[in-house]
Amino acid sequence: MTRTLYLFCSAAPPVFDVAGVIEHAQARGWDVCLGLTPSAARWVESSIDGLAALTGRPVRAWYKQPGEPDVWPDPDVVLFAPVTFNSLNAWALGLTSSFVVGVAAEAIGNGTPAVALPCVNGGLARHPQFARSLETLRAAGVTVLHGADGVGGLPAGEVPGEPFPWGRALDAVGSP
């Protein structure tokens, strides 16, 4: 039986690596459904059709309309990476105006395992709400890869010197 990974991405530079991440997850045995924040969807707009072909499912960035069928199977795990300051805080606060944040918030309530790998600059990482949101998500059972478990904050505008730790994120979701 194939298990389903919801891979959710915010608009941060690692989103440009998403095709390779999907391939790695599929090689591990996952059926991958890709969801993007509206900004991330704009960033990779020219690749949306190819990403849909890669997953075999539509890429989603918006809620479905009432009466439309669900086009994805239920998730076995949610991986939100890269998750930006805005999306992480919205998720922790239960502000579900974007599809991926809404589904991630619902995953907590449904007991679906979830992993978050933030990608934020140093200034935002030092904002007091960020620490509160990390703690809220961890207390809700989300595996948050930040600090010793993931990546730290970066100075504003700086690109990480090391690749985004996608492998660590995939290891955290486990095997199907």
Rank of each mutant, 00 (worst) to 15 (best):
Y6M: 01
L7Q: 07
F8C: 04
C9L: 13
P13E: 08
F16G: 14
F16Q: 15
F16R: 15
A19Y: 14
V21Y: 07
I22M: 14
I22E: 09
A25C: 09
W30N: 04
D31F: 05
T37L: 00
T37W: 10
A41L: 10
R42S: 00
E45F: 08
S46K: 12
S47E: 11
G50H: 13
L51T: 08
L54R: 14
G56Y: 04
P58W: 15
P58H: 13
P58D: 13
V59L: 11
R60E: 01
A61E: 03
E68A: 15
P69H: 06
W72Y: 05
D76G: 01
V77C: 01
L79T: 03
F80V: 10
A81N: 11
P82M: 13
L88M: 13
N89Y: 09
W91T: 00
L95F: 04
T96L: 07
V100G: 01
V101C: 01
V101K: 02
V101R: 02
G102R: 02
G102E: 02
V103E: 13
A107H: 02
A107P: 04
N110H: 09
T112W: 14
P113M: 08
A116Q: 04
P118N: 14
P118V: 08
L124K: 03
H127V: 09
P128M: 10
R132S: 11
T136P: 08
L137R: 01
R138S: 13
A140Q: 11
A140V: 04
T143M: 01
V144D: 11
G150W: 07
G152Q: 13
G152I: 07
L154N: 11
E158S: 09
E162F: 12
F164D: 04
F164G: 03
W166A: 05
G167M: 12
R168V: 10
L170S: 09
A172L: 02
G174V: 10
